[in-house]
Amino acid sequence: MTPVPVKMEDLRALIAGVLEVEPEEVTDEAHFSDELEIDSLLMLEIATRVETVFGVPENTIVIGGATTLAELHTFVVSKVVGATSAGPVIRPRPLSDPAMRLFLFHHAGGSHLLYRGWADHFPQDWELCLLEAPGRGRLQTLPLIDDCDRLVDHFHTAIAPLLDRPFGFFGHSMGALIAYQLTRRLHRQRAPLPDWLGVSAYGAPRGEAGADSRRHLMSDDELRGWLRNVGGSPPQLLDDDAVWRQFAPVFRNDFKLVDTWAPPPDPEPLPVPLSVFAGRCDQLIGEDRLLAWQTFTTHFGGLESYEGDHFYVMDQRRPLAAAITAAMRASAA
């Protein structure tokens, strides 16, 4: 089926119809909740209509977190364009012969949208590859994967043809675990290794279970409260019961993957330069756990901290991209 063209004016008229206002009142940059007074129920209705009209995968609009018409238009266009491919690798700026590829792995309960807009901050001859786990976004019809090794298998199969030039891995939170395990997989198989590995907001593996090792078993109220404290999730996702019921299985699935993963008893340090990144106000990971990564690599690049909490990456794209670029260039030299 040919995708329906996504015009800004059509989205404006759709939102105005739901709000029962004139289209000109829905300006490009008017904030949905602050200026247009769109609550979670109205946002759910808007999301449903947009998904129906433009053929966007079900349940992706709310989790996308758009806060203005301009952001919503950009997001819908990306979903319609991306609908022509159902693979787990999203390349915002495809290149026929990139000098470098950077693979980005998202957090638990999230999607490739964590890295929306990142390509603008990297060298023009680099190709960014955003990984999408099954069960969300355009892969929503695929079953969720709650086992670390199986998700590594899934991603390994997808990216294998793309490892034909220098590349690096960067993962945030759960994504850091996946990036680390995928690097170990490549090392064991004597396959091409990343020139550099970046782990963000995730502590080095340890034998004993942590305080949050049973998150997937929490009650709904406990889990929603925990997610509110951590941040990074749109309020309408946590505050609206109908929306929460749609996305709770994804959170529980991903937390089960992390919580039940068994660290290797005595892992061999990876012959790959490894750098660690974190938010200074992250209440989930202590500095000791972050610095402990140095025993898992033969080339430790140190710890870089930024203003922010567990989801500091959302507000620090430009300096973080600069740090990643510098680290990858130094490692590939």
Rank of each mutant, 00 (worst) to 15 (best):
R185D: 07
L182Q: 15
I178K: 05
A191S: 15
D146N: 08
H154Q: 10
D153M: 04
G135K: 01
W126N: 02
R136M: 03
G175T: 13
F167D: 00
L142F: 02
A133H: 04
R190C: 14
I145S: 04
L131M: 02
L128G: 05
G175S: 08
T141Y: 12
L131K: 01
Y180C: 10
D146R: 10
L130I: 06
I145E: 02
A160S: 09
W126H: 02
L163I: 15
T183K: 14
P143F: 01
A160K: 14
G175Y: 14
L177D: 04
A179W: 09
V152P: 13
A158S: 02
L128D: 05
R150F: 07
D153N: 09
D149Y: 07
A191T: 13
R165V: 07
G168Q: 13
L163K: 15
L144I: 07
R188K: 13
C148M: 11
R184V: 09
L128A: 07
F167V: 02
L142V: 03
P166F: 11
A176C: 12
R188Q: 11
L139P: 07
H154S: 06
I159E: 05
R185S: 10
T157A: 05
E127C: 00
R190V: 08
H156F: 00
R138E: 05
C129L: 05
R136N: 02
D164R: 13
A133Q: 02
H156S: 00
R188D: 08
L163C: 14
P134H: 04
F170V: 12
C148E: 04
F169H: 15
R138K: 02
Y180M: 13
H187C: 12
F167K: 12
G135N: 03
I159L: 08
H154M: 10
A176H: 14
L128I: 05
L151F: 00
C129A: 06
